[in-house]
Design a protein around this nucleic acid. Structure first.
Lengths: 225, 225, 225, 225
DNA sequence: CATGAATGAGTGTTCATTCAT
DNA sequence: CATGAATGAACACTCATTCAT
């Protein structure tokens, strides 16, 4: 019976042997497991055992990749948020059309990539534990907050430059958008955690409404000259 | 009818023996200490010893008043937020003048009573730990979220009834306000925890701006007929 | 208005004022409460609070009468067992009639005074805790075991002296009787603690049977000369 | 058919690595240590630390094998008594010869396996703590008392069936035997705990005497027709 | 005398981290 | 590399004992 044929030369890197492929994927598998556990139980209440079991490895293996619980947590944060920001930046650069539409696009992209995924739980974790991990604060500021501000700031400035928006304190507008995003991210961990609660929140509707309010306050009054 | 003779001026009866006076004040002292510790270190990272020491009592005494860490935490939440809500309700009932001003008043009252105090840290704690304390979720919904919605909802409806605001989804407006409040409460535990950060947030300005944006989107266009 | 008349001389001790009577009865009330608690929960699992509450006094008062838990326990033991032994001794001295009947009488007196009362639980406690209280062992030996041996030994010797019993190792007979008594005292704390158990033990029947077996082995064979 | 080559003489596979061999032996080592500690100090007074130290492991390791103190205790009881009962049952099945001799054999087997070993202290523990552990009561009844009754009951019935014993209430005879056994088990924890006590108890003599009394009361009068 | 608030040493249990295999 | 047995520091909670009132 023919063995698995040797991969053609030059292609070896593309399909490594199963063991190596496994090894290459391990870090991501561990981070996924850790994210799920951290988000659902909180940092302190999650045991390294839980993470390892969910990832299907032993506790020792987990420590082979991440030297401590704190480092694992930081790696989870890093892994979950950074990649998305470059995507948003591209959108701002390339977008053509009204800025209000750009903002809608950014918001929806964020929602589909972060807000609606488990990654939204990271914000909860950062808020909860940043007080005991000073380096995490700096990291989160540098890697998340600042880029986000720049990203959104550029979008708003685009609107002003194009005469679509009133001249308005850009930081204030950005913070307004971030407040909305944070609200959406935390809602599931607040009232949303109860099976029946009186204020069901549809994210799409919420974003649309907030955006409408914001833009109405932002846009240059038109047509009643 | 012979009465107990009136105590001498200064009313000795009004100043019970030191031990009793202490016992009457203990619960609040313990709650204050617990709030400070919980907020600064998180629920899991705070030891009962820490709380007791900060309150100047032994650990045993702490357990004399609160039977467990969880109960202590719930008492802290109760103590810090519930009283303020009735105050806000009174303001809405008695307010005369434009609704925009009422909203400003409410926002500033909230800020001075909750937002600017350590009590703001409670929101962080609730978000962080509600996942492991299901009863807390219900409690927070019943005692904080629902009353807050009602309070703000009544204020917004007042504006609509008086013809000041457009007819608008009340819940959306309330959520917008709560998003701003949450943003302010969490800011110190996010980027704000760093000594020097590039987005210093002045709460007064932030509230003013958000309110301005919101009201601009809310108010009935006037005078350009 | 006439005060309570002074009690006539010589009678004061018989009817002391209520408060003093209360005080005089306190120790017994405390011992009763302690016995009940110790027996039902064991020494280690009984809190001084429990004893005090059952006795209707504060914990401080309990310590006013007994300086420690250990001392309280010893007092309970002393109080419950010692008095009965003198009664048994009297019976042996005065008894007239067959010795087999004397043994029956002693057994039933023991049962009604000790075996059937809560005092039987003391044996359980002594067995359980004597290992950690060396003085208790000596006390129990001196005050309970030795007198009991002497009491029963005299009864058996009477039977031998009167020609009713074979000459037999007295200690062995006494131990046989004590084994039966211990069995009865411990039964409730062993299988007897279960609501439905397959070996219901009627104490009267048990004692009668054991005595019958013992006497049958002890009595001088009669009448088949 | 190619087999795995036979291991060299001495069978290396039979001696697993030290770590695994240790793991296989750990439970028994822990149970031995726990038995010794429990018996000498009582359940409540024994700290898990003590057990661990005596077993030469850390406290954490102890919890690796037994999830709580209560479970450890139950495992000790199980381990110490259950195995012996099957041995006794075998003896009854196979015995040939007079039933009085069978009873002697059973008694001596019990003494060498249980009575004279530390396992006798388990009875003390059960008596002392069964009140606070309802499941233990049921377990002890099912696993110890009932089998013991059956075992001894069969032996007594054998004597009656073979015409050696009078027809007698079997339960009463069994209880008489158990009373003797309990007396022997508790003696060391009662007067026996003192270095010099006036009633030294030689177990062999005691058993012989009790058996003699019992059998004399039980056996069919012979030969003086 | 009586109270009960206060104490703090003590213990069961958990879990991040290590390391022999 | 991977494992999982072992560790031990840490912490919530209890309760016998004290003492100011």
């Amino acid at each position: 019976m023919p063995k698995t044929p040797a991969p053609p030369l030059g292609d070896a890197a593309a399909t490594p042997p199963a063991r190596q492929r496994r090894k290459a994927e391990r870090p991501q598998e561990l981070l996924d497991a850790a994210l799920a556990q951290f988000v659902s139980k909180g940092l302190a209440a999650t045991r390294m055992d839980d993470v390892a079991r969910q990832a299907g490895v032993s506790k020792g293996t987990l420590y082979l990749y991440y030297p401590s619980k704190d480092e694992l947590f930081k790696a989870v944060v890093r892994n979950s948020v950074v990649t998305v920001l470059t995507e948003g930046s591209d959108i701002v650069d390339r977008f053509e059309g009204p800025t209000s539409e750009l903002l809608h696009t950014l918001m929806h992209t964020w929602w589909s990539r972060i807000g609606a995924s488990k990654a939204s739980g990271i914000f909860k974790l950062v808020v909860a534990d940043v007080g005991n991990m000073p380096e995490l604060a700096q990291f989160y500021l540098d890697e998340v907050i600042v880029p986000t501000h720049q990203l959104l700031g550029r979008a708003v400035e685009r609107g002003v430059a194009r005469g679509e928006f009133r001249a308005f304190d850009v930081t204030a507008v950005v913070q307004s958008l971030m407040a909305s995003a944070q609200f959406l991210m935390l809602y599931p961990y607040c009232v949303g955690s109860l099976p029946d609660h009186p204020f069901p929140l549809d994210a799409e509707t919420f974003m649309k409404t907030q955006m409408e309010l914001l833009l109405h306050g932002l846009e240059v009054p038109r047509g009643h000259a």
